[in-house]
């Protein structure tokens, strides 16, 4: 399969177990067979005013990050 180019080395977003330190394939799961990664768009919403609990970040770039499946609606 490798000779005919059906196997390749690459980066992919994979279901992963931090505890096991490796991808968690279907048969390694007790819940969630067939569940794959869902891609979101992480929208960076810039904080213009800081609450007291974040005063130490004044002058730094702080963003609230919202994960959306509808990037095309950000104009609203």
């Amino acid at each position: 399969m490798k000779e005919i180019g059906k196997v390749f080395y690459g980066k992919k977003y994979t279901i992963y177990s931090e505890l096991d330190k490796q991808p968690c394939a279907d048969h390694d799961r007790s819940t969630g067979e067939g569940v794959g990664p869902q891609e979101y768009v992480g929208i960076k919403i810039k904080l213009l005013e800081y609450p007291d609990s974040l005063k130490s970040f004044v002058g730094k770039n702080v963003f609230l990050v919202a994960a959306t499946l509808r990037p095309e609606t950000m104009y609203g």
Partner: peptide, 17 residues
């Protein structure tokens, strides 16, 4: 924006993670 991924549903490993 940045691309962000998470499992589309709950996934628990056989090790309980």
């Amino acid at each position: 924006a940045v691309p962000y991924y998470e499992p589309e549903g709950k996934v628990v490993s056989r090790t309980g993670d």
